[in-house]
C-alpha cells in the first residue's frame, strides 16, 4: 500500500526536469480548464454586483467599479425568492425522500424477500433505464393531469412532481446492490429472534446503509433542485413555481444584473449539497 499514490509518472521522475515539465504543463492546462469551468459562476457573481447600465457597457471589465451589494438584497426581495426557495425545497426534498423510501422498500424486497417473478421485475426496471423519459413525456403528463380510475388532477400539486421523481430504477438497483452486501447471518439471527421483515428493514438494513442513502438523497436533491421540464408542465400557478421555472419567466421583467444576482443565489443550495456529498464520496464515483 506504500506506493498507492503513484500515477503514470513515478515520484522519482517527478524530480527530473522532464517529469517536472510534463506535470507543469498538466497543471497549467488544468488551471486554464478549471478557470473555464468556474468562470460562469464568477461571471454571475460579479455581474450581479453591477448597475443595470454597467452590465451592458462595452469592453472588458469583470469586476464592477462600485460593487453594488444591494443588488443581491433587491433581487431576493423583488423576485420574492423566499417563496421560490420554499417551493423548490418542497419539490426537491419531497422528491428525494419519496425516491429513497420507494426505492429502499423495493430494493429490500428484491434483495432479501425473494418475491416470485423477481427476475421479470428486475428486467422491466432495467428497461426503464434504457428508454429516456422524454420519449413518453406526453402520456406521462396526460396521466398526471388526470389520474386514471380516481380522476384526480395533479396539476399545481407538488405530488405531481413527487410521484414521477420517486420512480428511479437506478436508485433501486444501487440500493439492492448495497443491501446484498449485508451479511446473511444478521438476517438469520434476527429471524430466530422472531423479527418481522419490516423490523429487519428498519432496525439494521437501513442504518447499515446510511452512507449510500445519504449520497443518493443528496444526488436526488441536486438533480430535482435544478429540474426544469416537469415543474414547467406541472406547476402552472406562479405562486407555486420552482426557481428554474420562475427565473425564466422573470427574465423579461427585470434587469440582467438583478437576474444574474438571483441566478447566483439559486446556485447556492446545490453547491452546499455538493460539499456534503464530497464528504461521503471518496475516490470518485464508480458505476
Amino acid at each position: 500500500m506504500a506506493r498507492m499514490d503513484r500515477g503514470v509518472i513515478s515520484d522519482i521522475e517527478l524530480r527530473t526536469p522532464a517529469g517536472r515539465l510534463i506535470v507543469g504543463v498538466f497543471v497549467v492546462i488544468l488551471v486554464l480548464f478549471g478557470a473555464a469551468f468556474i468562470f460562469p459562476f464568477l461571471f454571475a457573481f460579479t455581474a450581479g454586483l453591477k448597475t443595470s447600465t454597467e452590465i451592458f457597457k462595452p469592453g472588458l471589465h469583470l469586476w464592477p467599479e462600485n460593487p453594488n451589494w444591494g443588488n443581491y438584497l433587491e433581487a431576493w426581495n423583488r423576485f420574492n425568492m423566499v417563496n421560490m426557495f420554499k417551493n423548490t425545497a418542497i419539490a426537491a426534498i419531497g422528491g428525494a425522500i419519496g425516491q429513497l423510501i420507494v426505492s429502499a422498500l423495493a430494493a429490500f424486497s428484491l434483495s432479501r424477500l425473494k418475491p416470485a417473478g423477481k427476475r421479470v421485475i428486475e428486467a422491466i426496471l432495467l428497461i426503464t433505464l434504457a428508454i429516456p423519459g422524454v420519449a413518453y413525456l406526453v402520456p406521462r403528463y396526460v396521466i398526471l393531469a388526470n389520474l386514471p380510475i380516481i380522476n384526480v388532477s395533479l396539476i399545481n400539486q407538488f405530488a405531481g412532481l413527487w410521484i414521477p421523481y420517486a420512480a428511479n430504477a437506478m436508485t433501486i438497483l444501487i440500493l439492492k446492490n448495497s443491501f446484498d452486501q449485508i451479511p446473511k447471518d444478521l438476517y438469520e439471527a434476527a429471524a430466530v429472534d422472531g423479527a418481522s421483515d419490516l423490523r429487519m428493514f428498519v432496525s439494521f438494513t437501513l442504518p447499515l446503509s446510511t452512507p449510500i442513502l445519504i449520497i443518493l438523497g443528496l444526488l436526488g436533491f441536486i438533480g430535482f433542485w435544478g429540474d426544469y421540464l416537469l415543474p414547467l408542465l406541472i406547476l402552472r400557478d406562479p405562486a407555486l413555481q420552482t426557481i428554474s421555472v420562475r427565473l425564466i419567466s422573470l427574465t423579461r421583467i427585470f434587469g440582467a444584473n438583478l437576474h444574474l444576482a438571483a441566478s447566483f443565489i439559486a446556485m447556492l443550495p446545490p453547491a452546499i449539497a455538493a460539499i456534503f456529498l464530497q464528504r461521503y464520496i471518496r475516490g470518485g464515483i464508480s458505476f
Binding site: 469551468f37 460562469p40 459562476f41 461571471f43 454571475a44 441536486i222 433542485w225 435544478g226 426544469y228 426557481i243 428554474s244 421555472v245 427565473l247 425564466i248 427574465t251 437576474h259 444574474l260 441566478s263 439559486a266 446556485m267 446545490p270 453547491a271 449539497a273 455538493a274
Partner: peptide, 12 residues
C-alpha cells in the same frame, strides 16, 4: 457545472 440548475447556467 453539472450541479447547478441548468436554467441558471443557461442564463449566465
Amino acid at each position: 457545472p453539472a450541479l447547478v440548475p441548468i436554467i441558471v447556467a443557461l442564463q449566465v
